[in-house]
Amino acid sequence: MGTATLVAVVGVVGTLLSALLTQRAADRGRRREQQRAEELWERRSEALELRACYVAVNTAARHYLAALTDVLHALGRETELPSVRQRLTAARDQHREVYAEAQMRLPDRVLGPAATVSHQLGALYGMVRRLDDGMPGPGDSPAAVQRDIDALWERLREMRRAMRADLGAARSDSGR
C-alpha cells in the first residue's frame, strides 16, 4: 500500500507540474509576442514621424523658394511688394522652424542634402533682400537670383530623392 500511495502522489505531482510548466511556457510566449508587437508599433510610429518630418522639410523649403521667386518677380512693382515680402517672411520663419526640428531627427545621409538646401535658401534670401532694399552686393542681380533659383530646384529634387530612398519609396520606382 505504501508503494501504491507513492506512485499515486508522484502521478498527481507530475500532472500538476506538467500543467504548471505548460502554463509558464505559454505565458513566456505571450510576453514575447507582446514585446514583438510593441517593437513593431514603435518602429512604425518612428517611421511615420520621420516621414512627417520629411514632408514638412520638403514643403517648407518649396514654399520658401516659391516666396523668393515671387519677390524676384515683384521687384520694381511697388504695389505687389508688401504682400510678397510678408509671404517671404512667413515662409522663411516656417522653414527655419521645420529645419531646426529636422536637424535633430534626420539621419546624416538626408541631413546633408537638407543642409545644402537650407544654406542655399539663406544665401538666396540675402541676395533677394539686398536687391529689394536697392543695395545689391557684388554679383547680385535679378539674373543671378534666377540662376540660383533654378539650381536650387535641382537641390530640392536631390534632397527629396534622399528622403524617398531613406523611406524605401525609391525601391518602388526602380522599374520606371
Rank of each mutant, 00 (worst) to 15 (best):
62 R>I: 05
127 M>H: 09
93 D>C: 08
130 R>C: 09
92 R>Y: 15
118 S>R: 09
100 A>P: 03
52 A>Y: 05
74 A>F: 02
144 A>Y: 09
59 T>R: 13
89 T>R: 11
112 G>H: 10
136 P>E: 13
113 P>A: 08
75 L>F: 09
123 A>H: 12
76 G>K: 06
104 M>F: 10
137 G>I: 12
91 A>D: 12
90 A>I: 05
142 P>Y: 08
83 S>N: 14
52 A>D: 10
114 A>N: 07
87 R>F: 03
134 G>S: 07
100 A>D: 11
131 L>T: 09
83 S>K: 11
87 R>C: 00
130 R>N: 12
59 T>L: 10
141 S>W: 11
89 T>P: 00
111 L>M: 15
140 D>Y: 04
133 D>T: 08
145 V>I: 07
71 V>Y: 00
84 V>N: 02
73 H>T: 12
87 R>M: 10
52 A>R: 08
97 E>Y: 07
124 L>D: 06
81 L>M: 13
127 M>S: 15
124 L>H: 07
90 A>S: 10
45 S>T: 13
114 A>S: 10
75 L>G: 01
52 A>N: 07
52 A>F: 04
42 E>L: 12
95 H>F: 04
85 R>V: 00
89 T>L: 06
50 L>H: 13
95 H>L: 03
91 A>Y: 01
139 G>C: 14
49 E>I: 07
53 C>G: 06
93 D>R: 15
97 E>I: 03
86 Q>F: 13
